[in-house]
């Protein structure tokens, strides 16, 4: 499976990473190389094998649905690039 320039552009957009048009051919080539390496997996007979969901046989633990912390607005916002009036600020989302 090789990745063409249109697919590379689409993947970059899905990943929300800006890639300049001039860089797309090189990116497509690199991604294709990695995918070719992955093609080896097609040699393996996986009939009747369940995909692994947990590497150690354990059930995810549950806990009571209660508040365990809170009232730390200042800490939550402390590292924000733009925080105003107790909120994260972002560019206009809704027209």
């Amino acid at each position: 499976m090789s990745i063409d320039i249109d697919t590379a552009r689409k993947v970059a957009h899905l990943a929300r990473i800006r890639v300049e048009e001039a860089d797309l051919p090189a990116l497509a080539g690199e991604l294709s190389g990695i995918l070719t390496f992955m093609e080896q997996l097609n040699e393996v007979d996986v009939d009747g094998i369940e995909p692994m969901t947990s590497v150690t046989p354990m059930r995810l633990k549950r806990r009571a649905d209660v508040v365990t912390d809170g009232d730390i607005q200042g800490k939550v916002l402390a590292n924000a690039p733009d925080a105003r009036e107790g909120f994260f600020a972002v560019p206009k989302v809704v027209e």
Partner: peptide
Amino acid sequence: VMIGTYVLSAGFYDAYYNRARKV
């Protein structure tokens, strides 16, 4: 990140991601 995005995208999830988890 882009390779991961690709192997999880619609149409390729089974061929890559699920197959890898079986292997």
